[in-house]
Design a protein around this nucleic acid. Structure first.
Length: 782
DNA sequence: CAGTGAGCGAGCTTCCGCTTGACTT
């Protein structure tokens, strides 16, 4: 018989806490929310004050059953979910679902997982805060209303199975609008002038020193004139200014900053980072990885201090308390940090280690002294005009936190590395130039979003939570609103004018601009859906919508207003807009664009989003002749496609000729262009033009695929034609009667005989039957 | 994995936030 049952959200946390509390306490986990609005139905009764209908999701049934049993055995139940809106709601749902007795139930909260903090929490229990719970219900109900009313509008007006929501639709909007900015951007040229002076270093050896002109020059002619004017000029050091500066370390990691730095420094995707962090957390190596707090526990700060002192000495320590500036942060946890600061490295997988290293350094650096620098600026006067050059040098006089960690930045800055010392100079010193160059430079267009920079932007706007950043990015890609892609750069020529040995020369160089990798690009569907939503639902798509509604949720939490009142206010404004938009005549015509008339038949040629994505249509639905369709290929976009390009698409499928007495045709399908022969399909490799491919090339593709097919079979058995040992994506496996079975790790696939194969199959079938039923993947439509 | 789609039309799709599994062909 357990005296006490403590329920927390995460099982890893439960394990740790159990150790602190001793044998009178059992600690279990709720695995997050245990109850939610019904999955399939709207589940909100608008007429009854927005009463929600909750259910226990299938995958939580076992958890709840177990909690019920254990709660029945305990004298006292301690609801210890997180101290934020969602955590309070979890506590309340537990209270309701487990049918707890108020006299045997207590609500406790703690911000750090230390023995002291937990014992203190136990000593200071409170009641469930219904105002906070209602703020969560309001948040939940609002999101359901927005998502389940807007999505069907899209199914009707644009294309089935699309989705819209408070968070994802704004994320798409950011990407669409950035793309428009990029396309509308016109770069401006100007000339950057750099002089190389010859001076002596401290040992008297000649060295070169770079200095930049105080202004940029607009045109080539002016640059030419300027260089000409420098021919006979003398250069004198006019002033030397030495200024000490400081740099301070960044705050410890939150989910968002960890995702950004791991992307920049380690090249991880947002999802990868979270998966690795989860593993580190489960292994007890770091604190919780879904947090918006930059706070470190006193205990962690003390450990940092000790570790830094031990490694580098006391002068490297500077205790700092960071505060969160993020909109809407709820700070239920600490910042992300190593559980044991003294562990500089941990034993884990290679990728986990790299992430741990990053977290360790960032945490340690956050408690270290400022770096001290000395910046020297030398001003160099030009004798025959009013302009001047400046040479800048920067030296680190005390490295401080930079010894451990330097934050990275996204913007590929044009600034050159300034961390160098200037040679000794004196005021009034005359300088010789080796040459002066004026290089044409262009203003840079805004950068497209990466996964990580999108997360940063969303966080800045207060949209989404640490637990949803990664899923949101995956959703907008799954819906095909956004793709992660590359943009190949373009060559751009630029002028370089050089003054050297009393002569001005001119040459043209080229650079690649606009090349980008792994950036988020909007698709046609994304653009059409975004434009539609922004036009008809500007309120929801407004970047400040979440921040504004959060203020109202706060009022609910403070008990200043009823949650259903807020819902009523929102709904009376929102719902009519939904009705009005549904009543618009045009069905599935959103984003349609007429390209022109077919040159032979005079039929209308148009582009729009069809059931399966962007397509070209020739003819009209109500005409006698049925319309014809063709899907847009990857290189084309609805916004820019021309009539000629559209008609080109209808030249497929085309017949190339015969091979082995069967016809070979070329077509374009869902996955790109293909060769078809004898009811088999062969994908065409990238870069091959389906309009240009010859019969011989197509036959080569067929033969190549046949060869690859053969390689797939490692072993066949004469005794049983249904048994194969195959080579697959995840290594060798057994295939029997069209079903696949794993080969145990210690077995060499080549050595398997029929009997051992059957044994392996039998074993796995038994295992599958005893295991809980596998959830079926959603049925795919044929 | 594959060439679809304008209407006899069933029934389906969808949100955001909390949490981890089970297991890949």
């Amino acid at each position: 018989m357990q005296k006490n049952l403590v329920i927390v959200e995460s099982p890893a946390k439960a394990k740790t806490i159990e150790k602190f509390l001793g044998k009178d306490f059992k600690v279990l986990s709720s695995y997050g929310h245990i109850r939610d609005l019904k999955k399939k139905s709207f589940s909100i009764d608008i007429d009854k004050d927005f009463a929600p209908t909750y259910e226990i999701p299938a995958d939580k049934k076992d958890v709840v059953k177990n909690l019920q049993q254990e709660a029945g055995k305990a004298d006292m139940i301690w609801l210890a979910s997180d101290e934020d809106r969602e955590g309070e709601a979890i506590a309340w749902h537990l209270y309701e679902v487990l049918n707890l007795n108020p006299e045997h139930t207590k609500r406790i909260v703690f911000h750090e997982i230390t023995k002291n903090a937990i014992l203190k929490a136990i000593d200071n229990p409170r009641e469930i805060d219904m105002n906070l719970v209602n703020a969560q219900q309001a948040r939940r109900v609002l999101d359901r209303i927005v998502g389940f009313e807007l999505s069907p509008v899209l199914w009707k007006k644009v294309r089935p199975a699309l989705s819209a929501g408070r968070v994802q639709s704004v994320a798409v909007r950011l990407i669409v609008e950035r793309e428009r900015e990029v396309n509308a951007f016109e770069s401006e040229a100007s000339y950057r002038v750099i002089a190389i002076f010859l001076v002596s270093d401290k040992d008297g050896k000649p060295v070169e020193m770079k200095a930049e002109l105080n202004r940029r020059i607009k045109t080539k002619e002016e640059a030419q004139q300027f260089l000409e004017s420098c021919k006979n000029a003398a250069y004198t050091i006019d002033n030397i200014a030495v200024k000490p500066t400081k740099k301070s370390p960044a705050a410890p990691f939150t989910t968002s900053t960890l995702q950004q730095e791991a992307a920049r420094k380690l090249g991880f995707t947002v999802a990868q980072t979270m998966m690795l962090a989860q593993k580190l957390y489960e292994a007890g190596l770091i604190t919780y990885m879904r947090t918006d707090s930059v706070n470190l526990s006193e205990y962690a700060i003390a450990d940092c201090k000790k570790t830094i002192t031990g490694m580098m000495g006391e002068k490297y320590v500077q205790v700092r308390h960071f505060t969160t500036k993020t909109k809407g942060a709820q700070e239920a946890h600490e910042a992300i940090r190593p559980t044991y600061i003294e562990n500089e490295t941990v034993s884990a997988g290679a990728q986990e280690k790299r992430l741990y290293d990053l977290i360790w350094k960032r945490t340690i650096a956050s408690q270290m002294a400022d770096a001290e620098l000395e910046k020297t600026t030398a001003t160099i006067a030009i004798s025959n005009n009013g302009d001047y050059f400046t040479a800048v040098g920067e030296v680190i006089t005390f490295d401080g936190f930079l010894r451990i960690y330097k934050e990275s930045y996204d913007e590929d800055s044009e600034q050159e590395d300034e961390s160098r010392l200037l040679p000794p100079l004196s005021k009034g010193q005359q300088l010789e130039t080796k040459g002066i160059t004026a290089t044409e430079r262009f203003t840079q267009r805004p950068p497209r979003y990466t996964e990580a920079s999108l997360v940063r932007k969303l966080e800045e706007l207060g949209i989404g939570r640490p637990s949803t950043y990664a899923p949101t990015i995956s959703t907008i890609q799954q819906r095909e609103y956004v793709v992660k892609g590359e943009k190949t750069g373009e060559e751009r020529p630029y002028n370089v004018l050089t003054l050297r040995d009393g002569k001005v020369s001119h040459n043209v160089q080229t650079e690649i601009v606009g090349a980008e990798k792994s950036k988020l690009l909007p698709t046609d569907t994304g653009i059409v859906v975004n434009d539609f939503l922004t036009e008809y639902f500007p309120h929801i798509l407004n970047y400040n919508f979440t921040a504004n509604i959060e203020k109202e949720f706060d009022e609910i939490a403070d008990g200043d207003i009823q949650w259903n009142t807020i819902m009523q206010k929102f709904y009376t404004q929102f719902h009519p807009a939904v009705e009005a938009t549904l009543a618009l005549k045009s069905e599935r015509k959103v984003g349609e664009r007429i390209l022109g008339q077919h040159p032979k038949t005079g039929e209308t040629v148009s582009v729009k989003i069809g059931r399966f994505g962007p397509m070209v249509q020739i003819g009209d639905a109500d005409a006698e002749e049925k319309p014809r369709f063709a899907r847009l290929n990857k290189e084309l976009s609805m916004e820019t496609i021309t009539l000629e390009q559209a008609l080109e698409l209808f030249k497929l499928p085309r017949t190339l000729g015969d091979f082995e007495d069967n016809v070979v045709t070329i077509g374009a399908g869902r996955f790109g262009p293909y060769v078809r022969h004898e009811d088999k399909y062969y994908s065409m490799p990238k870069g091959v033009d389906p309009m240009e491919i010859t019969l011989d090339e197509a036959i080569a593709l067929i033969l190549e695929k046949r060869e690859a097919e053969k390689q797939k079979f490692i072993k066949e058995f004469a005794e049983d034609p249904e048994m194969f040992i195959m080579n697959g994506r995840y290594g060798p496996y057994i295939s029997y009667q069209k079903k696949n079975y794993k080969i145990p790790q210690n077995v060499v696939p080549q050595d398997l005989n029929l009997e051992t194969c059957f044994n392996i199959i039998k074993l796995q079938q038994e295992k599958a039957e005893s295991a809980p039923k596998k959830r079926k993947a959603p049925a795919k439509k044929k």
